[in-house]
């Protein structure tokens, strides 16, 4: 019996720079068409500007107490009102953005710096190294990000540095998992094996091929995790175990304001809203980036 020949449709080796540029342009267009992602990026930009330019935008000192001005409702003088110690809430939120953004970015950088190398080594080398690293990741996962952060704070104490370390460590296993998966699938790819055959050193192969090719998913994943670390860090603050008062960290503000929800609810509404918006901003931007750069990550 005869089968009609089934020719492969020609894929066409893509290597020209122009083609890559076109793809990048298309990516940018896709990102900009994604209204949600644009909204997310704008929200982040807004908070970044508010944080950076806070001294220019408000004349209030975020930490100066003025008990006679305590619990002023939102008004022309204090757009978002004042807290229990008479501090301007808007000023505190603007300055507080500095801490929130810094904590989010630094914590995720820390998690990336620890988790990605471990994951890549785990996936690339396999064997007992892989097993040990995976068990460690399992153990960290069993704590979950927030409990791990809490535990670390219990040990190393509270404060800004602790919060960054704690929130960062909280998501390390997720980064190990991601990087390991990347290394495993890239390891199978032909060119990595070719590099092996030419006898180039293993670690060089690892760095050159795998790290470069897994960069995109890692960037996307990192963006998606900034939101989570911000939630964890603010959660610590809310429990009084994070950045300490009088630093205007949003979670800490919310934790202090909680006592007054019955007669000054706005004191908790705004810091919470700020946390929510920034996390939403990172998540929307991350979702958008993922759709453009690496649709395979979509879950």
């Amino acid at each position: 019996m005869a089968e009609i020949a089934v020719p492969e449709s020609g894929g066409g080796g893509g290597d020209s720079l122009a083609r890559r540029e076109r793809a990048q342009l298309r990516g940018l267009r896709t990102l900009l068409r994604n209204k949600a992602a644009v909204f997310g990026i704008l929200v982040l930009l807004l908070f970044a500007v508010l944080a950076a330019a806070a001294p220019l935008l408000t004349s209030y000192d975020p930490t100066e107490q003025s008990l006679s001005d305590a619990f002023l409702k939102p008004s022309g003088a204090h757009l978002l009102g004042t807290d229990n110690l008479g501090r301007d809430i808007l000023a505190r939120i603007m300055y507080g953005g500095r801490y929130t953004l810094m904590i989010g970015v630094l914590a995720v950088s820390l998690a990336t710096a620890i988790g990605v190398p471990l994951g890549l080594i785990s996936g690339y080398l396999g064997g007992w190294v892989d097993m040990v690293i995976q068990r460690i990741a399992d153990i960290m996962l069993a704590f979950n990000p927030f409990l791990l952060a809490l535990l670390l704070v219990a040990v190393i104490g509270v404060g800004l540095k602790s919060v960054i370390i704690a929130a960062g460590f909280g998501v390390v296993p997720q980064f190990i998992r991601l990087a390991r998966g990347q290394a495993l699938s890239l390891r199978e790819e032909v060119y990595v094996q070719a590099a092996d055959a030419f006898g180039s050193k293993r670690m060089t192969t690892l760095r050159r091929h795998i790290l470069r090719n897994s960069l995109t998913p890692i960037v996307v994943f990192a963006t998606l995790n900034i939101g989570l670390t911000v939630l964890v860090a603010a959660g610590l603050g809310f429990l009084g175990l994070g950045v300490q008062s009088p630093t205007p960290e949003w979670g800490t503000m919310l934790g202090e304001a909680r006592e007054y929800i019955f007669y000054a609810s706005y004191t908790s509404t705004f810091p919470g809203l700020a946390i929510f918006l920034v996390v939403l901003g990172f998540n929307l931007a991350g979702d958008g980036l993922r759709d453009v750069l690496d649709p395979s990550l979509r879950a």
Binding site: A2, I4, A5, P7, E8, S9, G10
Partner: peptide, 24 residues
């Protein structure tokens, strides 16, 4: 299509497939 159908005891020349590939 029939050219790519092998004929029992037939000519070699009947074994030719269609040149090229189906269009995109």
């Amino acid at each position: 299509l029939m050219g790519s159908l092998p004929q029992t005891g037939g000519d070699e020349k009947w074994l030719r497939p269609i040149p090229g590939s189906p269009p995109n």
